[in-house]
Amino acid sequence: MKLSLRDVHKAFGPRAVLSGISLDVAQSEVIALIGASGSGKSTLLRCVNLLEPIDDGVILLDGLDISEPGLAADAIRRRIGMVFQSFNLFPHMSVLANVTLAPRKVLKVDKAEAEDRARSLLTRFGLAERVDSFPDQLSGGQQQRVAIARSLAMEPEVMLLDEITSALDPELVGEVLDVVRELKTSGMTMLLATHEMGFAREIADRVCFLDRGEIIESAAARDIFERPQHERTRQFLQRVTDAGRL
């Protein structure tokens, strides 16, 4: 298994956010996490990227326990890419500087080489003309594609996508999803939290439905949408359908 979670618990004060999450992600597998806001999807991703310490349980990356307290988190994080709902680009840097910062400062790649690689990544995502722009001069869709390129510049082994289309205007969602489709084709292992049910169904090998910090149901995308086994899954999908989002 590329990534394994075993009975992961996380609470913020008295409020339990993850209550015993267990999940296996194979190499090149794409897993979509669905569920209402507050069900723990984002926290789960933040815990995998060690942005939040977990209270109990184990997270394994290639069999290495990365949830070990006191582990050098920076070395682990550079192997796991993360893309955020609100892009989190650095507004004081050009697109090129955003993408080259981590390779240069963390991997010590020299400037010319880092820029070459950044340019080819940005070209791949249709951003060749925008390398010298600043984030605030770009549309939301362009910003999110830059954020994905920035993350890929570290050549991560796993990508975590945290509702990466939720802050976008509807007509800009497609261009970002195209990038994710391309990543899947290239064999990237991905764990994504999403509200785009159609997309989850299309791209995910497996879909996990989270409710109140637990994985209620985990199945092949088609099965979960067509034959949900659990009552709570059915209710959630019904609400999504009623809202016209499926």
Partner: peptide, 11 residues
């Protein structure tokens, strides 16, 4: 979120 963005890259 700026810190999270930077730390997630391994900085």
């Amino acid at each position: 979120s700026q810190r999270a963005g930077a730390r997630s890259l391994g900085l």
